[in-house]
Design a protein around this nucleic acid. Sequence first.
DNA 1: ATTGTTATTGAACGTTGTATAATTATAGTG
DNA 2: CACTATAATTATACAACGTTCAATAACAAT
Lengths: 193, 193
Amino acid sequence: MARRSDHTRDELKELAIAAGCALIVEKGFAQFSARGVAGRIGYTVGTLYNVFGSLDEFILCLNARTLDAWYDYLCAAIDGAKSGQLLKLAMAYINFAQQHVNLWSALFLHQSEQEVPDWYKAKTRRFFDLVESVLAGQSNEDEKTIRIQAKTLWAGIHGICVLSLGNQLAQVDAGSAETLARHLIEALVVEKD
Amino acid sequence: MARRSDHTRDELKELAIAAGCALIVEKGFAQFSARGVAGRIGYTVGTLYNVFGSLDEFILCLNARTLDAWYDYLCAAIDGAKSGQLLKLAMAYINFAQQHVNLWSALFLHQSEQEVPDWYKAKTRRFFDLVESVLAGQSNEDEKTIRIQAKTLWAGIHGICVLSLGNQLAQVDAGSAETLARHLIEALVVEKD
DNA sequence: ATTGTTATTGAACGTTGTATAATTATAGTG
DNA sequence: CACTATAATTATACAACGTTCAATAACAAT
């Protein structure tokens, strides 16, 4: 019952990615499976392997989609703002993670067996560059310091996000993720005079 | 061929946990399996289920062991030191994670299906308390501020650690995990006068 | 000895990732 | 239009996994 004209290769890819994301959203990454996705799009696992090569690659594509959406979300958050961009960035970071917990968690839950390909690395690197450029417009430190500041800040926000979504911050009261993020930024970044 | 006097229930538990940790150390959490552990200790999966009830519970015990070792390591690092305790704490944090990547990663890779039991929560809570107490001896802010500082700091170090071990910091040069941690602490904490 | 209890096993079930041979649909060619 | 080559899709198979449970073995008590 091979249907070849139902969907082009690209349509199929898109179909599978959409279904994969939906599956992760609904059931979480732990319940994600190739057969689950295949069933949702009316194909068989074999087709997925034919299109993506391996499950690893497939998940990489799924996570890449999330990275793109996340990045766009961050860009939109600071678009047109001239002050407090860092805070807006941090809040957008946290908001996205909270609103798409399962997709966001999948980014870090999936441990690729192979070395992560360059095109994927580039997608994660963009985030650093974003923070760095925002920071550069707000601080008058030298480039090296800004680089370190950006990494520290980014990692810090990430840590807050991870622990917050893992409910490992909730048990210790005092301060939501947003509060901590604000605290971190205020301490770490000295506003330009 | 049931042998009942070979090991008491507690010995068996200890045996299984040790073998489980060894398996994670050697092959990583992704390759961990109940059958793998059972094989190493010369028992069957059924026995593990009998002793631990479920795989979830078993892994919880494994991670608890890691948490204990980690906590002890942190305590030892600041034992007897009267200055720069925070930095020592952060470095110990990072050192432990680096030296026991697989065990440390398992702590966050394992997503328990059930709500995490209280005895386990207590073990993670201790870490916050530790940071908080160190911070209290070093700062003269009020309690609430210290609480927030502790959480921000802890989450920040954690984020640095996560990204560092995931090689997501390496691609952006400038600054090891240790450098970032030092930077974070200096910015976040104002030493007592 | 016999019994009751409990640890341990072995086998089974459903599901997973992965590979491959067998099918089927299409494109190309005469 | 018929025939063939090519590529997509399926069906099937395999080993390993988590999980359950009846059968079995070992022990404690009487």
